[in-house]
Structures are given as C-alpha cells and as structure tokens.
C-alpha cells in the first residue's frame, strides 16, 4: 500500500473507533491496537506506540472539559497517579522483554474485560450522597447544588491503579475500564467522578511510558499521525453528539466488536501470528 492510501485508511478506521468509543463511553483506544495489527498488518510494537500517543491526546482533550466542570477529583487523581505512573514505567520496561504473542494474548484478555465491565451509568440508577468529605473526598455539581462524597479503601484503589498503569504501559492503552473499576467499586467514589477522574489520570499514565517508547523507536510518526488525528476528530464528534443520543443498541454492538477483537487477539497470539 502506498503511504497516502495507508494514511487515509488508518485515519478512517481511527475516526470510526474514536467516534463510537466516545459515543458509547467504552473508549476507542482499546480497539486501536487490534485494528492496526489485524486490520492493517502493522507490527504489534508500532501499533502499541501509535495507540499510546492517541490515548494521551484524547484523554487530555476530554479531561480539559471535565476538570473545568468540576467533576474530576484532582486530589484523588493526583494521588492515584503515583501508582499508575510507577506501574506504567514498569509496564513499558517489561513490554520490551515480553514476546509480542504474549502481549497479544494479554490485550485480548483486557479487551474481553473491557467489554463486560460496567463503564457507564445504568438507566434509573441514583447516586447516593455520601457524608462529609475527608482528605480524598470532595463535591461534584448535582442538579440541586454540590453533592458531597467521601472515598474509602484507598490502599486497595492504589493497588488496582498500579495494575491499570502496568497494563497501560505494556499495551499502549488507557486502561480506563480498570481505573473506573478501582475508583467506583473499590474506593466507592460516585460514578461520574470515577469516569472523569479516570480520564484525567490516563494522560499522565500514558506520558510516563511514552518517553520510554519514543527512545525505543516504537513511535513511528507516519503511523502515530493518522491514528491520533483520527481518534481525536472522532472522539470530539462523538462527544458533541452525545447529548440526548440513544446509544444502548450501539453500545451493545460495540461490545460485540470488542469481544470479537479480543478473541481474535488471543487466537493470533496463541498461534504466534502477531
């Protein structure tokens, strides 16, 4: 394929992934690596590098909006970033020593996990207001003024974030689903706070390993460019359309796509084809 056609096709695929990912709340970053390796025959290491760059861009872009609206808890985010960055550095160091077939199987498992875990608020679910807020608690804007909440089990949350960072550094993904799980389920933070704070943290987590990837030559400009521009444009369009969109069917469909890609990654990894 010549470069112009290749860039156009990769841009189109990334645009679709970013658009559907942001519209469904499932995130597009997780499908970029399988899209590149399975769809375009790109080497796994280049795919991981390009995916990581796009993750920094979309996370920072979305975090900019959430943090201004007051949903993200900057103190919780910053505290947990100690765990995610340390994990990401370890993950990036590990990624070079692990064969790509093993990385593919691990990514497949993460894809399957992302498809089943709850990363969006179910219909009719009410946020339970917490008591006073301690060091890591806070308030977020509710329909009738600020709602206070507190956080619990910080050490457990910290441990889960270390794993999220490790996977992010190894696989070039944001690990948003695992971060949300850590804050929502383990630390008991309100759902909206968990998702937006997760987004806030993804940029720093990815930046921690991006330097290592850059030094190793994993970040190919001709690949990172169409992926990043595509995912950013797609996510932006998806977020614009999000208000009032009925996404339940789309979300189910996208989950099925993620499951299929997960199975494909595990199969190719097992066969040593990646």
């Amino acid at each position: 394929m010549n470069i112009a056609v290749f860039c156009g096709a990769v841009f189109g695929g990334s645009l679709a992934a970013g658009f559907i990912g942001s519209l469904t709340g499932l995130g597009g970053g997780v499908v970029i690596v399988p899209l590149l390796t399975v769809g375009f025959g790109v080497n796994m290491r280049y795919a991981i590098g390009a995916s990581l760059v796009s993750v920094i861009a979309t996370s920072s872009g979305a975090a900019a909006a959430y943090v201004r609206e007051g949903f993200s808890n900057v103190r919780v985010g910053m505290t947990l970033e100690m765990a995610t960055s340390a994990g990401a550095i370890a993950g990036a160091a590990l990624a070079a020593r692990v064969p790509t077939s093993a990385l593919a199987i691990l990514l497949g498992a993460v894809l399957l996990f992302s498809a089943v875990v709850r990363v969006h608020k179910e219909q009719g679910e009410e946020e339970k207001p917490g008591g006073g807020h301690g060091l890591l608690g806070g308030t977020y804007p509710g329909p009738h003024g600020p709602i206070a909440y507190e956080s619990k089990r910080a050490p457990l949350g910290f441990g889960i974030m270390g794993i999220a960072g490790l996977l992010s550094g190894m696989l070039g993904i944001g690990s948003g689903a695992i971060k949300v799980l850590g804050m929502d389920l383990a630390m008991g933070l309100p759902f909206k706070v968990s998702t937006t704070t997760s987004n806030f943290m993804i940029g720093v987590t990815a930046a921690a390993s991006a330097g290592i990837y850059l030094h190793r030559g994993y970040i190919a400009p001709g690949l990172a460019m169409p992926v990043t521009l595509g995912v950013v444009a797609g996510s932006f369009a998806g977020a614009r359309l999000l208000a009032g969109a009925k996404v339940q069917t789309l979300r189910t469909l996208f989950r099925l796509v993620i499951v299929a890609l997960g199975v494909e990654m595990i199969y190719s990894g097992w066969k040593g084809q990646v």
Partner: peptide
Amino acid sequence: AVLYLVRHGGEQESYSTFRGE
C-alpha cells in the same frame, strides 16, 4: 501531516516488521 503526504505520499509503507525508528 500535509508536508509528509506531499513529500512521501507515493512511497510504500512498511510497518509489518519492527525495525525501530
């Protein structure tokens, strides 16, 4: 991107094997 496509758009891509940048 514009500069890259204008100058290198007609060349062949090669990302199937990892060589490092």
